[in-house]
Design a binder for these strands. Sequence first.
DNA 1: TATTTTTGATTGACTGATCAATCAATAAAA
DNA 2: TTTTATTGATTGATCAGTCAATCAAAAATA
Lengths: 203, 203
Amino acid sequence: MPKLGMEPVRRKALVEAALRTIGSQGSLDVTMSEIAREAGVSAALAHHYFGSKQQLLIATIRTLLRQLRADAVSALARAATPRERVSSVIRVSFDADQFAPDVVAAWLAFYSEAQRSEEVRHLLVLYARRLQSNLLSGLTPLCGRAEAQHIAEGAAALIDGLYIRRSLRTATLSIDTSVTLVEDYVSGQLNTRNTRSPSGDRT
Amino acid sequence: MPKLGMEPVRRKALVEAALRTIGSQGSLDVTMSEIAREAGVSAALAHHYFGSKQQLLIATIRTLLRQLRADAVSALARAATPRERVSSVIRVSFDADQFAPDVVAAWLAFYSEAQRSEEVRHLLVLYARRLQSNLLSGLTPLCGRAEAQHIAEGAAALIDGLYIRRSLRTATLSIDTSVTLVEDYVSGQLNTRNTRSPSGDRT
DNA sequence: TATTTTTGATTGACTGATCAATCAATAAAA
DNA sequence: TTTTATTGATTGATCAGTCAATCAAAAATA
């Protein structure tokens, strides 16, 4: 069997298998055996390439983030106006791939794991920052930096919240409704906050 | 030692210990021994009273929800106008008790567990419905039922999202900022959506 | 009141199952 | 022959759940 150069192939297969297994089970409490079986190899091989379960998990999150970033970059590139940039970021967050129940369940599991693993937490903070920054790139030209910051925080939280709700699979939450909700939020804020005197919050 | 009537005392102590342990560890992967030790009894006793770990978890969530409902009811009672009702609901969601890092971490763990346990999922759906309904009681008199529905969905998701963000402990997210964000969202929506023709969403 | 019986409270010790991680062995390129 | 890929078998640790035994209050009885 040993064709050479299997390493990258196996790594990829294992990461994808991990994502599928975690997603379908909605938990990081999946065994290396399950993941390995899903990838069509033995558990020992998974250990051989990743050293530990934790490392495989980290690699899985990294892959998810890389995917997300790639999508965001290409979407932003297609946007002409600042307002369009905002809409792009919103839409990407709810792209079919990322919003699939499996993936959402996996995200939830990762957030939970972040409570225990500093490394996982760091990765999720990175994601949060990037989302924020992507939103800001469109919002700042439309209102003050301060206003933009405020709106971006709200929009980011709203997006995360819609993910959580989706994880409960309580029927009524399509992709379109989600996008509309965030869009309405941004529009509403841009509206009322532009027509008034731009006052900061009194924190 | 056997004073009679220990059962309710032990149950309460164990549930509180479970919440503390889960919260501080940020995961449901806590052992019965840890919980029992925290409550000052043996693991066997925890099993004696709750039958299984799962049952203890369920009881813990129930307690949390009961607390939340009590807070909401008393806050709503103090509100005079519809708009005040909305503010009450928002403020209760971010009350110091519920928004403490430990409790937030516990919530996150429960959401994750909901992926596996139908019973847990059911409880969380109940919570979501109640939040929604509480918001609606204030919003409906202020705009149409359809508009209110839309805004309530957004506000509820926003609240959940702010919880998640808080779980990452990424510094910048005080109670006041959170309240302000949701208040601004509601105000903004009430504003822009009232001045336009009240169009339903096309879901 | 004194003694016995019953019952709730409580635990240490044990069991069976699960799992991450290791390792020695095998097979096939190079 | 050296290196890479791969696995079955094994180990060591961890845990949920069980059980038989103990202890002391309370209730019943003498």
